[in-house]
């Protein structure tokens, strides 16, 4: 077969994927940038060029700033906790404890259920006075609280749900990594009289590092991408106390129909994701190997 024919075959094989990816990822990303410099057409009035107007508006938009701050708190609050728990769960499930299958099921089950379904269930748990959490705390004499309706607890309540939902998913990656670690390492360490904590700190944890970095990036992406629970439980409220960036984009585009401003907001999200991509492929890849 000639080199030329090979080239044509390769491109024909790629054609459907390339067309679809271009149509729904690359072109929209470029168009988002383009549209972010125009305001939203209203009725007969066409879109007008506003330059960086949307971006300067953003700096004085309290909802955007709140969304950015909330998203940062959300990521910083959920990601390390979920990763720590995931590692712990994987160690438990990979140990010689009795009832491993049951434990694994209980950790993993939340991750395969729709976020919308579990968010509805948790909505009940958070119900002031009547819900499970207030009933439980009531036994210890705590007053009832409007968990989702109070600006100081709304975001935290969403974060607890997110950790519960995601930890089991990340556990799977750790479980896979743990099973690749040779048992002879543990035997050798035991012969040397190394304690379990010492062994974890000096052997297991470093060997899990590539997994941790991989999970870390994915967990951060998820914290920007998943807003189903915001839609169900708080709708960003009260007073934007629990709004996240993608939720604000959703609201701006499909509630207020201000697509020009939504495009500019999307650019901020794209910039953040690009930064993450840069960190992953540019810096961390020196240590993480995709064979």
């Amino acid at each position: 077969m000639t080199q030329g024919r090979n080239q044509i075959t390769a491109w024909l094989l790629l054609l459907p994927a390339v067309v679809l990816l271009a149509a729904f990822t690359h072109v929209p990303a470029v168009m988002t940038l383009f549209n972010s410099f125009y305001n939203t057409p209203r009725g007969v009035r066409p879109a007008k060029f506003v330059g960086i107007g949307h971006y300067t508006d953003m700096l004085s938009d309290p909802v955007f700033l709140a969304a950015l701050k909330n998203n940062a708190i959300y990521a910083i609050g959920t990601v390390p906790v979920a990763i720590g728990l995931a590692m712990l769960m994987a160690l438990i499930v990979n140990s010689s404890i009795r009832g491993k299958a049951m434990l694994r099921m209980s950790f993993f089950l939340p991750t395969i259920l729709p976020m919308i379904a579990v968010a509805n269930i948790w909505l009940f748990f958070y119900t002031p006075g009547y819900g499970l959490i207030d009933r439980f705390l009531g036994m210890f004499g705590f007053a009832e609280r409007n968990w989702l309706g109070d600006g100081s607890t709304a975001l935290g309540s969403l974060m607890v749900l997110a950790v519960w939902k995601e930890a089991g998913f990340f556990m799977i990656f750790y479980l896979a990594a743990l099973q690749q670690i040779s048992p002879s390492l543990g035997e050798a360490a035991a012969l040397e009289g190394a304690g379990r904590w010492y062994f974890f700190r000096r052997v297991t944890f470093p060997l899990l590092m590539p997994t941790t970095l991989f999970v870390l990036i994915n967990a951060i992406i998820n914290s920007f991408r998943l807003i189903d629970h915001v839609i169900v439980m708080t709708r960003g409220g009260p007073d934007n106390a629990s709004t996240l960036l993608l939720y604000y984009i959703y609201q701006t585009a499909f509630r207020f129909w201000d697509t020009g401003y939504a495009a500019a907001l999307t650019m901020v999200l794209l910039a953040l994701l690009a930064l993450l991509a840069f960190v992953q492929f540019g810096i961390l890849d020196r240590r993480v190997h995709y064979k």
Partner: peptide
């Protein structure tokens, strides 16, 4: 270019994809 989609899922670009 393909791998970019691992980072930028379609829902992130929902405003533009809706227009399409």
């Amino acid at each position: 270019l393909v791998l970019i989609q691992l980072m930028i899922m379609p829902e992130v670009l929902m405003v533009e994809n809706y227009r399409t």
